[in-house]
Amino acid sequence: MGRAFVFGDNIDTDLLAPGHAMKLEPREMARFCLEAVDPQFASVVRRGDIVVAGANFGMGSSREQAAISLKLLGVAAVFAQSFARIFYRNAINIGLPALVLPEAGEIAAGDEIGFDLEQGRADNRTQGRAYAFQALPPHLLAVIRDGGLTEHLKRRFNGTRA
């Protein structure tokens, strides 16, 4: 269960991870996440909250800090109508669920949202509605369950070397 923070279409990686902060340590950098569209976001978002957006979330650069910043701020998942490909892969690779939800536009700021990754189901407790989203394929669920691609690969390499 988390509160929804709602953004529009085409939220780009320069908004998520501004260039001026790119040389900072990840935790420092996260303080600037989305500052240009919502200066309060990084200070008020809490562990378990949800980011909800329109089309093409994460467009722009390949910088993984865009996804890492959200993860470090405690964001539990991003629901968007569509994602930019590199952001989508990055999010999963660092263990942040990126979920395609055509009805993302129905979610209002502050709505309480719960979700079940395996079943592909999200509940909007505030509005009393349920949404279905396409569950991730098993190999990507495994990456998220392992806590990201690095942990996932550790198992693979340690497995093969053991």
Partner: peptide, 19 residues
């Protein structure tokens, strides 16, 4: 030719492949 984030790239340079 496609762009990848850092963890994806690290996995690629470790294994030589990607999905």
């Amino acid at each position: 030719a496609a762009g990848y984030g850092a963890t994806d790239m690290a996995a690629i340079v470790a294994t030589g492949e990607t999905w």
